Computed example of a mutant assay.
Amino acid sequence: MCPLSALIVHALELPRLVEIRDNLLARIRGAEREGWLGEIEGLQSSLTHAEEKIAQLDAQIARKQEAVNLGLPTSGRSLLALLRLPNRRSLRDLDRCRLRRWSEDACRSGGDAAAMAC
Rank of each mutant, 00 (worst) to 15 (best):
C2V: 07
C2M: 07
S5Q: 14
A6L: 12
H10D: 15
L12I: 10
L12R: 11
L14S: 01
L17T: 00
L17A: 01
E19S: 07
I20Y: 05
R21M: 07
D22N: 11
D22S: 04
N23K: 04
L24F: 06
L25G: 06
L25F: 08
R29T: 04
G30R: 03
G30M: 05
E32V: 04
E32L: 07
E34G: 08
E34M: 05
W36Y: 10
W36D: 12
W36M: 13
L37Q: 10
E39W: 02
G42R: 09
S45Y: 12
T48Q: 10
A50S: 05
E51R: 05
A59R: 12
Q60M: 02
Q60N: 03
A62H: 03
K64H: 11
K64R: 11
K64F: 07
A67K: 14
V68E: 13
N69T: 10
N69A: 15
L70A: 11
S75L: 09
R77G: 10
L80M: 13
A81H: 10
L82F: 12
R84S: 05
R84P: 02
L85E: 07
R89Q: 04
S90W: 10
L91N: 06
D93P: 02
L94F: 03
R96G: 08
R98G: 10
L99M: 12
L99Q: 15
W102R: 09
W102T: 12
S103E: 10
S103N: 14
E104H: 09
D105P: 02
A106P: 00
A106I: 00
A106V: 02
A106L: 03
C107V: 15
G110Q: 07
A114Q: 01
A115Q: 13
C118A: 06
